[in-house]
Design a protein around this nucleic acid. Structure first.
Lengths: 293, 293
DNA sequence: TAAAAATACTCCATAGGTATTTTAT
DNA sequence: ATAAAATACCTATGGAGTATTTTTA
């Protein structure tokens, strides 16, 4: 059964169409004897008679009729796969696996994907919400074509493109003393209860925050590490602690939470990172993300 | 493109699974060099790179990922077709194309098909209402596996099995003078307006009727030739003419129509006819039709 | 430097050709 | 008697093996 070959299927289908070995051979640009032999061999391998033959008449058996249908469909499927291959290689078809940090899902991502989809309607986009660390792992394994993440620690083998920079802001419970300030210095976070993203999952972003705090030797007390911006805001509103987040959190307008600019205007940056063995349209996607800021 | 072979697809899929030419070759019970060559050749034929390779790392390209899906599905489809082949050849699966005259659709057919379907649930039955003549043509062409028809003129190459015999009856408008008789002789049809099936479409049945009429040299006036029993009854009810039909028409109880037995009790017979190149379960179907009379 | 892919070559299995025979109408 | 499938035999392409080289992490 492992010896069956497409050649034999093509021969079988030609004979099934013509019901005449001579004409089928002509159509296949070959002579009749090897065709007869090849079809016989196929029947032996399958253990089933596909044709009833006399020297005057060739006709399909019930099994042959069934196999004609199925084998024909198989060949068509294969041909359509081959036809699509060129399009995928050229980057006009296929699927593109995209990772993104949740904070990208409100601005860059939706607009960028939409712009890209208009250029490449036959590419199926598969965006997944992932942490920066997860994305870097998957990008290196080739399981992701493009990652959208914050402040990547530069990783060898991955090329990063800046999508947008954004100021960081202090996120404070309304009742917090610091809420009275119009601008918050790093020193004021010293010994303060703080809710932050876990370093392991967002190494770039957290180290950016830490380096700003380091300018004033401020060492905050990390009371919680949580992954999602929304959760951070909830904890701040509940008075668990203060936090530092990208300015775009202001979009949420959460009651009981106020935001203040930071002294020295530290920034966080959103990058698109391309896998070395990514889909050929990855570059175009990154352009779309940059263009639709 | 016409040179692609299943062997190459199997090789490609093995390498795509292992992402390592050496291990893939082992799995295929072959050595590494010819595997490398075969995959390279496949890529050349397709005009597309399926793998990114270094001596340290083999990974799929976007095109390769797509082709892996599609080619894998193609192989599975083919294997399932091959697996089903045995069942079709053994007659436990497949489709069975059945022709029947409309008058069989009330008794033999439904019961017979149901009985058969219980024995062979995986065979898909395809019954079609056809005239006797159409059935004989299709049976000879191998386009039909079994035909159910009346009084076949014996045709070389077709084997007929008697399913049931039935008396013929006179079918008369209620107002007809013959309706007063309790039994109708052939002679009374001489010169009489008669509605009958067309000879070309039901040669066996019509010649049976004619031969009975011939016993009394009766020559009726054929005023209409129609195909369906139901239409014949409508015309008789409308007073267009008398007719001769199988006794089972009594089932219809049509107002304005009476039936009378015929002198000499001529009969019509329902046969199952098997195509010479029919499905292996044709014989079983015919048994089912006979058994459930 | 070591592991793995690529290249070079050799051999033989088999696909396909030519010539002929068999068979069914 | 003839058309077409089956058989016999031959040839050569190319698939697979062994030995070796090249590459990169």
């Amino acid at each position: 059964m492992d010896l069956m070959e497409l050649r034999q299927l093509r021969y079988f289908l030609a004979v099934a169409d013509e019901l005449h070995f001579g004409r089928a051979a002509a159509r296949l640009h070959m002579t009749q004897p090897p065709l007869t032999v090849a079809v016989r061999k196929l029947e032996e391998e399958l253990g089933v008679e596909l044709f009833e033959r006399t020297t005057r008449n060739v006709s399909l058996t019930a099994a042959g009729r069934m196999f004609r249908q199925r084998a024909g469909a198989v060949l068509e499927d294969l041909e359509s796969a081959v036809a699509d291959l060129g399009d995928v290689a050229a980057g006009v078809a296929g699927r593109l696996r995209i990772g993104f940090v949740s904070s990208a899902s409100y601005s860059v991502l939706p607009r960028g994907l939409q712009a890209f989809q208009e250029l490449r309607p036959r590419i199926h986009l598969e965006p997944r919400s992932l942490t920066s660390a997860e994305q870097i792992t998957l990008l290196l394994e080739g399981e992701l074509d493009v990652g959208i993440l914050r402040d990547p620690l530069s990783v060898p083998g991955l090329h990063a493109t800046l999508l947008e920079g954004e100021d960081l802001v202090a996120v404070l419970p309304a009742a917090d003393a610091l809420a009275a300030e119009s601008i918050v210095p790093a020193s004021s976070f010293h010994e303060k209860a703080v809710v932050l993203f876990p370093f392991e999952l967002m190494p770039g972003f957290v180290s950016a925050v830490m380096s700003w705090l380091g300018t004033a030797q401020a060492v905050p007390r990390i009371v919680q590490s949580v992954i999602h911006q929304e959760t951070v805001l909830g904890l701040v509103a509940a008075g668990v602690g203060a936090s530092i987040l990208p300015a775009s959190v202001a979009r949420f307008q959460m009651p009981g939470v106020v935001t203040r600019p930071l002294l020295g205007s530290p920034r966080t940056e959103l990058y698109a990172v391309e896998s070395p063995r990514s889909h050929p349209s990855s570059a175009l996607l990154i352009d779309s993300l940059r263009g639709s800021k």
